[in-house]
Every structure is written in structure tokens, then in C-alpha cells.
Design a protein around this nucleic acid. Structure first.
Lengths: 172, 172
DNA sequence: GCCATATAGTATGGCACCGTACTATATGTC
DNA sequence: GACATATAGTACGGTGCCATACTATATGGC
């Protein structure tokens, strides 16, 4: 349930006579997340989609007026530059199209094609259903306990770095 | 404690009238891991190191005879191509050097410089100490419980994708 | 109306990862 | 010893992410 690099790290810690306390547990969290991400990527790849592209798809779903790259960046929590790249791929593969802005001529309206709409509709449900299966066998108490434990780690994280993905870190 | 994209996903799920069961919890695991990775990266960046480079550093530490790129790839759980890139950066920044193999002339022996040795020695301890602080306040029972919950999710993951990072998936 | 400034989108270059393809060397078989 | 095959390392191109810098358009102050 760990990755190679994690085993290596544990080995080195043992070699240095350090206790495993917390270390293994932390690596298990990271390994589980990576495994979930890999699994997610593997599910989307056959559709020519990545996780980032999938997010844009459902952000645009049922939104005939479209969204601007700027809004997409804010809601997805990535930079506008990243959005440009994802849109290039999605447009190339026929999931959406960029339309020139009418009021503000700097703006672009991004709208799903029929293919994009269909993909968003179907894949979102598939995705959430799949995630639900990961927690098969968990009752409300288990979930409560799990969430509490996660939050306790979260609170120990360096608060200066933690806020990331808010995109506008506005330094100084 | 969630990222923008996770909030968007939860919103969309709510809009579709789907239950949150498991979904929010899953996103919290992913968000926590990302936060830990970000924090880790932020700690290493001032030393011109990434997490991948850091792994190579401690794999090579106290190993005067060095390791080959091939062995590094196996132990780090990434491809040889990735190792080439990491070594390029580490060599450029003076952490290590490539030495021609003597017995097998295809092989290269990668060995840390004094700077690399020093960095590996200091940073590894810093790193594990930092991780330990993330679990401050956790007693043995908490850790046991946490690990059990993680393992239960792990077992629900698609077994065909789960094995990744073993590098040699040897298809068919 | 004019200019400084802000904003929208993109381009460019960097990083860490991958898959694939290539070169050089080693090895096993005949 | 020659040749098919395997292995070591790298090159190349692709992805998703970032920071930075650039162009076009909008806006506020005068």
C-alpha cells in the first residue's frame, strides 16, 4: 500500500534509527491519494480527458452562455495560463469552442459542444458513483471519525502554505 | 480545507441532487495530500530541490560506490527517463556527478558531491521531523484507527490500477 | 479626449512525470 | 566469432502545472 519511494524513505529512516511514528501513516495518506488520482486518470484517459479537463467540462455543463477562461481559472483553482492549455486540448478534441466576447472584446466565452455536454453529463455521474464505491462499507461513524482525523492533520500544516489553490495569494 | 475544484465538484453534485456520502470525505483526503505535497515542495524549493530530487539524494546518501540511473529508477518508482531529467538538474546544481561505469560500460555510477552529502544528511532529518509534527497529538490508538480507515479505502480501489509505481507493469 | 492603470487571454519557458524510440554495450546461441 | 536479443542511458515529444512577460481592450482621473 506504499510506493517505491515511500519504502525507500522508510528504509532510510530505519537505517538512521528514527521511529516510524507518524511517518508511515503520512506516507500511506500520500500513497492512497496518488492511487486514487491514478485510478481517476485511468478512467478518464479513454475519453481523451484528464482530471483538469474533466473539471472544466462539468464547470461548463448546462451553461449555454458559457464561462470565460478567467472564471474557469478561478473556479478550478489554477492559473489562466493552465486554462489556456486545457482549453487548447479540449477544443482540439471537439469538447468545446471559444467564442469571441461581444460586450467586452477582451473576453472569450467558452461553451461546450454537444459532445462536451454529453461527456459532462455521463462522466460526472460515473465519477461520483465511483468515488462512492471507494467508501463502501463506511457508516456515518466511520466517516465522521475519518474526517476528524484528517482535520487534525490539516491543522498541523504550515498555515502559510496551506492556503494555496486560492490562486490570488497577493504577496506583500 | 478543500480546493476550488473540489468545491466546484461538490456544488455540481448538490445541483444534481446527489448525496455527499463519501464524496466530501474523498475530496478531503485528496486536498490534504495536495497540501502536504505543496508544503513539502515549499520546504525543499529554497535548496533548489523538488520531492523527486530529494528522494534521489537520500537514496545516494552514504553510498560512496554510487548507484546507476537504472537502480535509482527502480527504487524511486519512476521511469529511467524521469531519472535522466532529475539527474541533469542535480548535476547542474552540483549535488552529484555521473561517473562512467568500469565493468559494464553501459552503466553510469551516480555519486553525491560533498554538497549533496551535506544536503541529504540535513534535509532528511528535517523532513521526517516535519512529518512527525503533522501528527502531533496523535496517540497510538488514533494512528491505528487512521491506518485502518485508509486501508479500507485502499481495498476498494480498482486492483488493476492500484499496483502502479511498481514501474514494471508487464502487460499481458 | 488622453494617459496611467487594470484586466483578459495567450505565449514562452521551466519542471516533473510519462511513453516511445534511439544508441551503445553486453550476453547467449549457434 | 557472428548475430539476435536484452539492457543501460538518453533524446524527443506530450501533459499538466507554474511564473513571467506580452498584446489587446477597458476604465478612471484629469
Amino acid at each position: 500500500m506504499l510506493e517505491q519511494k515511500h519504502l525507500a524513505l522508510l528504509d532510510e529512516a530505519k537505517r538512521r534509527g528514527q521511529p516510524e511514528t507518524g511517518l508511515r501513516l503520512c506516507l500511506e495518506i500520500l500513497a492512497l491519494s496518488s492511487a486514487i488520482d491514478r485510478d481517476c486518470a485511468a478512467r478518464l484517459a479513454p475519453h481523451q480527458l484528464s482530471e483538469g479537463k474533466f473539471v472544466l467540462l462539468f464547470l461548463l455543463h448546462d451553461r449555454p452562455e458559457g464561462l470565460s477562461p478567467h472564471e474557469l481559472a478561478e473556479r478550478a483553482g489554477v492559473t489562466r495560463a493552465t486554462i489556456t492549455g486545457l482549453l487548447d486540448g479540449l477544443e482540439r478534441d471537439g469538447f468545446l469552442a471559444r467564442h469571441a466576447g461581444l460586450e467586452d472584446r477582451r473576453k472569450v466565452s467558452v461553451r461546450l459542444s454537444a459532445k462536451g455536454q454529453a461527456a459532462a453529463r455521463v462522466l460526472f455521474d460515473e465519477h461520483t458513483k465511483w468515488i462512492a464505491t471507494l467508501f463502501a462499507g463506511f457508516n456515518a461513524d466511520d466517516r465522521q471519525m475519518f474526517g476528524d482525523l484528517l482535520r487534525r492533520v490539516w491543522q498541523n500544516l504550515d498555515p502559510t502554505v496551506t492556503q494555496a489553490s486560492a490562486q490570488a495569494a497577493e504577496p506583500g
